[in-house]
Design a protein around this nucleic acid. Structure first.
Lengths: 144, 144
DNA sequence: GAAATAACGGACAACGGAGTCCATTATCTT
DNA sequence: AAGATAATGGACTCCGTTGTCCGTTATTTC
């Protein structure tokens, strides 16, 4: 598993938040119901997204959470960084403790470009892109 | 982390076994010392590699483990399959429960080729390749 | 101001991966 | 045959992730 389950949940929840009118505050409970993510756990994850500045929140009736920035300004990599951190992009594939550019493991050279592609993909795609992809499924002219 | 720690250990241990004279039986204890992997844990991992037919073992004095096939016939993907299974190659990146070709998640199309590249890399490289890479470092004519 | 609402935050339970310990079994050496 | 050696397999601990529960705090509505 490349991303933690919590991180997968975060992406799913943020996609849902983006797909609704981003102006409005959504109750965590509603996000949990819509995405079928365990509500109390999602609550923790969302707390973290709020702390990291991806979501803003409001307490009390008619409160909830909403995107803190425009959907186009939140990259998938931002979400991953907020939940999992970016360590998995630097870590040696076979866990060799001394793996580096000067002391590469036997998979290092072949893995490097792949790792860069993964990072690039996550860094390019924004929440806005993902929701547009969801809506425009099957239409010509998509980027990938 | 893309591979489990146990799987990383397995690759490291098998690389070491390949780098020694593959005819001889190596004591798990020696492999653990050379690779700095916790010995009792490595013992469990190696048991699994024996059960899966990647290593063969012999008990008693002068016993130990050695490659069950030629180093060129053991692909990195075989090791991953033996320890972690191949589930991570099928699993949706963002954990969407209904993600498939007909019901793709918004990252599905972009992720597919990347997943294939990862699988391809692991399926192409054998233990023999890795050890050759280790030995021939810096020489011209390497493949990657 | 009171009641309802919804995020916040801490404590805890459940689960699996990582790692240890030890008794057993098979094999080699003398 | 006896003792030493090394893998095998079971039970166990430790810890981070996943997930739950509940009281507190802030805010809105009436």
């Amino acid at each position: 598993m490349i991303l933690s389950r919590a991180c997968e949940y975060a992406v799913q929840a943020l996609i849902y938040a983006t797909s609704q009118r981003p102006e409005r505050f959504l109750a965590v409970r509603d996000v949990a119901l819509a995405t079928r993510i365990p509500m109390a756990y999602l609550s923790k994850i969302i707390q973290r997204l709020v702390a990291r500045g991806l979501l803003s929140s409001r307490k009390g009736p008619r409160g909830g959470v909403r995107l803190a920035r425009l959907a186009g300004a939140i990259k998938v990599l931002d979400i991953v960084e907020a939940i999992d951190g970016l360590g998995f992009l630097n870590r040696c594939v076979i866990g060799h403790p001394r793996c580096s550019e000067t002391h590469p493991c036997p998979l290092h050279d072949a893995w490097g470009p792949l790792r860069d592609e993964i990072q690039g993909l996550l860094a390019r795609r924004s929440l806005g892109d993902l929701v547009r992809e969801l809506r425009g499924r099957g239409l010509p002219g998509r980027r990938s």
